[in-house]
Design a protein around this nucleic acid. Sequence first.
DNA 1: TATAAACCCGACTAAAATAGTCAAGTATCA
DNA 2: TGATACTTGACTATTTTAGTCGGGTTTATA
Lengths: 141, 141
Amino acid sequence: MRLTSKGRYAVMALVDLARFNNINPVSLRDISLRQGISLDYLEQIFSKLRKKEIVQSVRGTQGGYILNKRAKEIKLTNIFEAVDEKVKTVQCKKDSKKGCNGKLTKCLTHNLWDELENHINNFFDEKSLEDLVKDNNERRV
Amino acid sequence: MRLTSKGRYAVMALVDLARFNNINPVSLRDISLRQGISLDYLEQIFSKLRKKEIVQSVRGTQGGYILNKRAKEIKLTNIFEAVDEKVKTVQCKKDSKKGCNGKLTKCLTHNLWDELENHINNFFDEKSLEDLVKDNNERRV
DNA sequence: TATAAACCCGACTAAAATAGTCAAGTATCA
DNA sequence: TGATACTTGACTATTTTAGTCGGGTTTATA
C-alpha cells in the first residue's frame, strides 16, 4: 500500500497556499519553487482542485490560486477525492470473475477491507487544512 | 493509495489456511483453487511467509503449509511486513533532493504522513488471523 | 524404487499506473 | 504589447505489479 505523489503534492501545495491566503493569489510557480514540485504537474493537480471547487483561479499577471472555502472546511477527504486519490482495497465490484461480488461464500476477507477503508477515511475526514497549517505554525515557534 | 494484490492474497490465503489448521498441511494447489489465486504467484508469496516464520512447509506428497504460530499471535502487521506490503507515505530519507531530510523548514506535511502511518498500523497491529477466522465463522452462521 | 505430489527458486515479461513533459493556447495587468 | 500566469490535452519514460515459466528438490506411497 502506498500513497501516491499526486495526493501528497496536492496536500503540500494546499498547505503552502493556505499559509498565504487572504492576501494575494499564490502562483503555481512560487509553490513549485518552494515545494520542489514540477510546475507542469502542479498545473494538472490544480486543474482538478479547481473543478472540485477547492480553489479558485485568478488569471493574468499577479494571478494565481486562492482557496475557495475556509481552510477549516477543507478536509483531507475532499482533497484526495479531487485528485482521484482514494483508498482502494477490494475490487469485488468491478470484475465479475475475481473478487466476491456474486457469491456469498467467497472473499473471506471482504469485511476486513471495508473496515480498513473506514478506518483510513475517518482519519481523512477529521483533518482539515486549517489543522495542518496550525500544526505547522506551532512547530515553527 | 491502494492496497496491492500481494497483500490481499497473503491475508486471504492465510485465513483459508488457518481454517484447516491443526489437521493436515494445506497445499497451495487447494488454496489456489478455493481462492482463485494463481498457484505460481502463491508460491512466491508463501516463500516470503516462510522466511518470516509465519508458516512452515511440509515437503513431499501430502505436503503443504501449516501455521508456524497460533492464529491469535499472527497480526496483520506481520503478514504485510512479510510480503513487503508496507504503508509508504513520505520518501524523505531515500533521496536527498526531494523530501525534507536535511532541511528543518521543508516538508510542511511530514507530521501528517507520520500520523497517518501510525493510524493505519494501529489497525493492523490489533487484528489477528484468529479475529478474521472468527469473524468469518460468525457470518457464516 | 519409481512416480507423482508438492515445495523451492530465480529469471523473465506484459500490462498498468505513475509521474511527469511538452506544446499550444487564453486571460489579464502594467 | 509584452510578460505573467492560468488552461488544456496529448504524449512518454519509468516503475511497479501481477503474474508466467522452467527448471529444480523432497518425500509419501504404491
